[in-house]
Amino acid sequence: MAWQVLRRCGIFLLSALAASVVVFLLLSVLGDPARTALGTGATDEAVAALRVQMGLDRSLLVQYLDWIGGALHGDFGTSYVTRAPIGPQLADRLSVTLWLVVGAMVLAVLIAVPLGVLAAVKAGRPAGNVLSAVSQLGVAVPAFLAGLLLVSVFAVGLGWLPANGYVVPADDPGGFLAHMLLPWVSLGAIQGAVLTRYVRSAVLDELGKDYLRTVRAKGLTRTQAVLRHGLRNAAVPVLTVLGVQLVTILIGAVVVEWVFVIPGVGSWLADSVSRRDLLAVQAIVLTVVVLALLVSFVVDVLASVVDPRLRTDRTA
C-alpha cells in the first residue's frame, strides 16, 4: 500500500513536470511574449529590447529553469501588461476559486448520491425514468447558460439574491453564502445531474452481485446490505467519475466566474487571455493543470483505499 502511494506520487510529480514543460513550450515558445506585450504596432527594436529585458534572449532551458524555479517558490514574475506581480494575485484568486469549486462539488455529491441510489433501487419504475431524463438534460446545459438563467430568474426577476460579485467569507459569512449560492447551483446542479447517472449505474451493477446475497444470508436486510456493502463497492467507479468532474468544474469555473463577476482564477484567466498577458496565462494554466493532475492522483489513492484489489500492482 505504502509502496503504491509512493509510486502514484512519483507518477504525479513526473506528470506535473511534463505538464510544466508543455505549458512553457505552448506559451513562451509558440507565443512571443515580448511582441504580444507591446502589440502589433511596436517596432522591431523595441521588441528586441524588451526581449532582452524579459530574458527571452537566453537559451530555452535557462528560461524554463528560471521560470519553474520561481514558480516553485510562488514567484511567477511580473506581468508586462498590468505591471503587477503575478504570484500574490494567484494565491488570492485561487482561494476564491477553491471555494467555488469545492462548494459546487459538495452540492453535486449531495444531489447525486441519494438520487442515484434511489434511482437504482427503484430502477424500471417511472421515478427512475424521470430521473434519467432529467440528468440527460443536465448533461446538455452549459454551466454558463444555467448561470445566466439563474441570474435572470432569481436575481433580476425575483430579486432574492445578488446577481454578481463576491464577499470574503471571513468578513461577512451571510453575504458570502448569498453571493455563492447561484454560482454553486450553476456548476453543482448540472454536475450533480451527470453524476446521478453514474451513481445509479454503479449501484445497479452492485445490486446483482453475489456477495450481496451472501450478506443477506447472514441476516442483513436488503437495504442494510446495500448501505453497508453495496455503496462501498459502488464507490470505486463513482470516485473516478468524481475526479473527472472536479476537473470539469474547475474549467467550468472560468465561465461561471465570468458570468457572476467573481474575482477567481477563472475570470482572471479569461481577462488575461483577452489582454494577451502571456505570463499571467502561463502561471494560471500551470496552476489549473497541476490541480487537475493532483485531483486524479488523490482519486487513484482513494480508489485503492476503498478497493483492496487495486492495491496490488495494476498493469494495463
Binding site: V22, L26, V254, R276, V288, V289
Partner: peptide, 13 residues
C-alpha cells in the same frame, strides 16, 4: 489534463 476550453484559452492567448 488540458480540456478543450483550457486548450482554446491557451491558443487564444
Amino acid at each position: 489534463a488540458f480540456p478543450a476550453l483550457l486548450m482554446a484559452l491557451i491558443l487564444a492567448a
